[in-house]
Design a binder for these strands. Structure first.
Lengths: 205, 205
DNA sequence: CCGGCCATCCCTGAAAAATGGGATATTTAT
DNA sequence: ATAAATATCCCATTTTTCAGGGATGGCCGG
């Protein structure tokens, strides 16, 4: 029984790399790829892979959100998160959203195969680095911000005023103001400048 | 005459992807890879590729610094920068340090081949996205800021107000305000939030 | 020596953000 | 089911920023 594998990643070279790593594996059936969250969801309406390898950082909807949706709609599909070295901070979010495993993009073929076969059995696979990062992070540095707050944060960083943000998100500027206040509190910053700086340092933007 | 290609990237999957993309190309001789700057330099002591595909973001020495060293020691080697979508701000630094080309990691095989063959002839190749980003940055952007302006910029990013900055630098807050205004003009940003974001993206902070 | 750049200082008025309250519906989690 | 979290809205005051001006002395390179 082959394991049906699908991949969602916005980097063509990574897709190609994984395909190359898996193409000679007898236990793997390569189903194809999507380069963004929307394509992935569209694909899932008509196909059912066993395992999805999913990049965390994609333009548009992130892998973290995509993972959540996928697990809600298709709980039988196992998700393996993929990320680069300096995005380890998102590992726990990915796992919270139902991912079954996590490998870094510099994983070897052995690691990748082990991850796929492990999660295909319904178990959890974490690469050594990922497991390490999971332990290390979770410290107080990284504030837990809500989806909405993140949207607001990004628009603030783009230089929009509260009113412009309000128009963009179809909410009142007073609401934007509240989100902004909460962001300042959560990041323990005293104004917009340090808020943006801190958020960027934590790679949240 | 085959083009000898070497790659330096810390992501095994990207290496594998590129290898897969190039393996059937008759004009390409795959020399191997390094996963960090040090290995790359060690390799170059005994081998001479025509083209090095080089990731920008690597643990330890960055591709930007590596590029500089490589071009100083081996000016006949052509370097092609590789990066993801959200690192476009480093393109110009890479080009300043002697890179001959730049492609994003979601490039197609055609783009990659075109890049390699173009730079192997000593010409410059920029992917459309890279060229676009470069124009955007070089023309109005990458502001030349003075020492004092940079000091002020850093303190702004730390969240200090004009008055606090003034006290710290022993100048009047009106002066700080002028520096701030000039920074906004030079960065073509409309407020502090986008100023900080832009400055961080350009790694000026 | 002079012109340009830099750093410094000042003014004003409008716009926006920060601060610190309070309040309610909806979702999510336990 | 109930508590917690989230998203929403409102107000009033103070501080800060934004966007125009203009002005002075110092320093460096042509």
């Amino acid at each position: 029984m082959k394991t049906k594998v699908f991949i969602t990643d916005d980097h063509y070279m990574v897709i190609e790399g994984i395909r190359s790593l898996l193409q000679n594996e007898k236990e793997i059936e390569w189903m194809g790829h999507a380069s963004n969250a929307e394509s992935c969801l569209a694909y899932l309406q008509t196909h059912q892979p066993d395992v999805i390898l999913m990049d965390i950082n994609m333009p548009g909807m992130s892998g973290i959100d995509l993972c959540k949706i996928v697990k809600e709609k298709y709980p039988q599909v196992f998700v393996v998160g993929l990320s680069t070295f300096n995005q380890q901070s998102f590992i726990h979010k990915m796992m919270d959203n139902g991912a079954s495993g996590y490998v870094l993009k510099n994983a070897t073929q052995q690691e990748l195969m082990e991850a796929i076969s492990t999660v295909a059995k319904g178990k959890t696979y974490l690469s050594d680095e990922a497991a390490f990062a999971l332990k290390k992070i979770e410290t107080p540095g990284m504030p837990l911000i809500t989806r909405r707050e993140k949207e607001v944060l990004e628009l603030i960083a783009e230089g929009l005023t509260n009113i412009e943000i309000a128009e963009k998100l179809f909410i009142s500027s007073a609401t934007v103001d509240t989100h902004r206040k909460n962001l300042l509190i959560k990041f323990q910053t005293k104004n917009t400048a340090s808020l943006v700086r801190t958020a960027m340092q934590l790679q949240l933007i």
